[in-house]
């Protein structure tokens, strides 16, 4: 899928050059390995490069934060992962982290401090919003001007951490028409993937959660669903497919919307 080589330095490379980044981009497992999520990763990196952010990734030194292990009940494995990651992060004296995954965001921000890992952690929607506020990033509507976009709140960004506004402000910057689903913000319906559900079949029931959520999207009459989480991306994309709406409803990550509107 890769068409061009992105300019991405690892912490190891920067350190070898005697340099330090201002921010670490925590890519996450989905962002590193899942084909659809990799597009989000690349889009976000393009924006960072366009703005000229001095950033780095951990590359092969990054490892799962332990979120799915913790939510699946394996606290031991979670803490093993956390301690390993904290050793790596502290080894590079990382102070600030940005990530495109709300699960990584939540774990790094809330669960690592108790194990000795203290960092300023931002979700990419918050990071991009701060770049706009500082005047470093300018967005014009581009291809999304006037289109109806709805935002599907990731549980681990919204309810879990109270961030509902940053993603919406980004969408408004696109000169698009932000429409809300009937269940949104603190009442937003989960996509069905949280709590390690992403890695197993759902328990028996009448319906899949992502299909139920896709019905909310259809009802909102939006032609774009913006997501801020790689798992939501998978679930919403599948939901739209199941409902045979691929032609009329597109699923994009917030970073993709911005990158595309800037022609990146």
């Amino acid at each position: 899928m890769a068409t061009e080589n992105l300019n991405v330095k690892t912490m190891a490379e920067l350190t070898a050059e005697g340099k330090k980044p201002d921010v670490l981009f925590w890519v996450g497992c989905a962002g590193s390995f899942d084909d659809r999520a990799k597009k989000t990763t690349r889009a976000f990196v393009k924006i960072l490069n366009e703005v000229g952010i001095n950033f780095a990734i951990l590359g092969t030194e990054e490892s799962c934060t332990g979120d799915p292990a913790k939510r699946a009940g394996n606290e031991f494995l979670f803490q093993m992962q956390a301690m390993t990651n904290i050793q790596v992060l502290d080894g590079y004296e990382v102070k600030k982290i940005v990530t495109t995954c709300p699960h990584c965001f939540n774990t790094l921000k809330n669960e690592y401090p108790g194990l000795g890992g203290n960092y300023e952690v931002m979700h990419h929607s918050q990071f991009l919003q701060s770049l706009i506020e500082e005047g470093q990033l300018k967005i014009e509507g581009g291809s999304f001007k006037g289109r109806k976009i709805t935002f599907h709140d990731p549980c681990y960004l919204g309810r879990a951490n109270g961030e509902y506004e940053a993603p919406r402000k980004l969408i408004e910057q696109l000169d698009s028409d932000l429409v809300e689903m009937k269940r949104c913000k603190s009442k937003g319906l989960c996509c069905g993937a949280g709590g390690a559900q992403m890695f197993k079949e759902a328990e028996p029931g009448k319906k899949e959660v992502n299909d139920e959520r896709t019905e909310d999207v259809i009802e909102s009459k939006a032609d774009v669903v913006a997501v801020g989480c790689p798992f939501c991306m998978t679930m919403m994309t599948d939901g739209v497919k199941t409902k045979e709406k691929e032609d009329s409803i597109k699923v994009y990550d917030l970073a993709e919307l911005i990158a595309e509107s800037k022609g990146l």
């Binding site: 890769a2 991405v8 890519v27 962002g31 590193s32 990799k38 990734i57 590359g59 990054e62």
Partner: peptide
């Protein structure tokens, strides 16, 4: 997978930054 590969899927740790290539 998390325990052996550092990711919930069965991918090699060494391929983690391949998205950038």
């Amino acid at each position: 997978n998390v325990e052996n590969n550092g990711a919930p899927w069965q991918f090699a740790q060494n391929d983690r930054a391949n998205w950038a290539k």
